[in-house]
């Protein structure tokens, strides 16, 4: 017994080092569970407030660029106004209304909510964006985020009362289901942790016809993003030697360097779809 105490006294510093290192590595590996428990409550609010102060200055210097972006967005939306379209006089017509229920039975599925970006990073190996809008302003976990020109930015991972943290496409855990516009092949968009604005598309078979400049959409297979949001354009197609797949480099359509406003997308049907999937998997398991 005495020897054990002597041992602990002799190597006390080393033991402290090992314990602290194990603690840190535990945080890295189990970051998702930990993140929900502590960071969303306290640290998120504190760092969010400091970042808001900084962003007040930063925002001023980017006003011109933000204006241009909003003008572009306005132009796109104005072109979609009903007055711009002439409808032939037929008995069947499609009405899309913003009222939740209309007489022809249309139900609102997606809702876009604008949010101010208070901080964003691109240089780290795992990048996050913080929004000045939280659970009190109808932001929930797992909502999709797009920039003003409808380019995919990321997915909400964590929400506190007035702030929310978005895992951007530039994150090692980020995986988004995507579809090529031309051939319709579906794959996954990921990031290799190096160059911002350059993503990679995997799981595309070598039999697919892919060319430089092809457009990449969201597939609409998940409940996070609607079909047809811009992800990027193909920059380079490299056949993977060890498998039957291509390794495709993508230039992302969202510009992560100067995000100021983004839109958070809510899916009103996600609860229903996910609940259905859950009961289906439970049934097969039992």
């Amino acid at each position: 017994m005495r020897n054990i105490f002597l041992f602990i006294r002799r190597y006390f510093n080393f033991i402290v080092l090992v314990i602290l290192q194990i603690f840190c590595i535990y945080l890295i590996v189990h970051y998702n569970t930990y993140h929900n428990a502590v960071a969303s409550g306290f640290m998120n609010e504190v760092t969010g407030k400091i970042n808001t102060q900084y962003n007040k200055v930063d925002y001023y210097f980017q006003l011109k660029r933000t204006n241009e972006q909003l003008a572009k967005d306005n132009e796109r939306l104005r072109n979609q106004l009903a007055e711009n379209f002439d409808r032939p006089d037929t008995s069947a017509k499609i009405v899309i209304d913003s009222i939740p229920f209309d007489t022809s039975g249309n139900i609102r599925k997606w809702e876009y909510r604008a949010a101010k970006v208070v901080s964003s990073s691109i240089a780290a190996p795992n990048n996050f964006i913080v929004l000045r809008r939280g659970s009190a302003e109808h932001i929930k976990k797992d909502m999709g985020v797009v920039d003003p020109n409808n380019g995919v930015v990321g997915i909400v991972t964590d929400v506190s009362e007035h702030f929310s943290v978005v895992m951007s496409l530039l994150h090692k855990d980020s995986k988004i289901s995507a579809k090529l516009k031309k051939g319709g092949e579906a794959g996954q968009v990921m990031w290799d942790g190096k160059d911002p604005n350059r993503l990679s598309l995997t799981e595309i078979r070598k039999s697919a016809k892919v060319a430089k400049g092809d457009t990449l959409f969201t597939s609409g297979f998940t409940t996070t993003f609607p079909y047809g949001l811009m992800l990027g354009t193909v920059q380079e197609v490299v056949p993977e030697k060890s498998s039957n797949n291509f390794n495709i480099r993508i230039k992302s359509s969202a510009n992560f360097y100067n995000l100021q406003y983004v839109y958070v997308i809510e899916n009103y049907q996600s609860d229903e779809i996910n609940g259905l999937l859950k009961t289906a998997t439970n049934k097969t398991n039992n």
Binding site: L17, L20, Q21, F23, C24, I25, Y26, L27, I28, V29, Y31, Y34, H35, A39, M43, V46, T47, N51, S119, S121, A124, N126, F128, V130, D158, V165
Partner: peptide
Amino acid sequence: DSFRHHPGFHSAACVL
């Protein structure tokens, strides 16, 4: 790490 939203990395390096 709190500013980077992923705890653990810098803490480990600093302690070492």
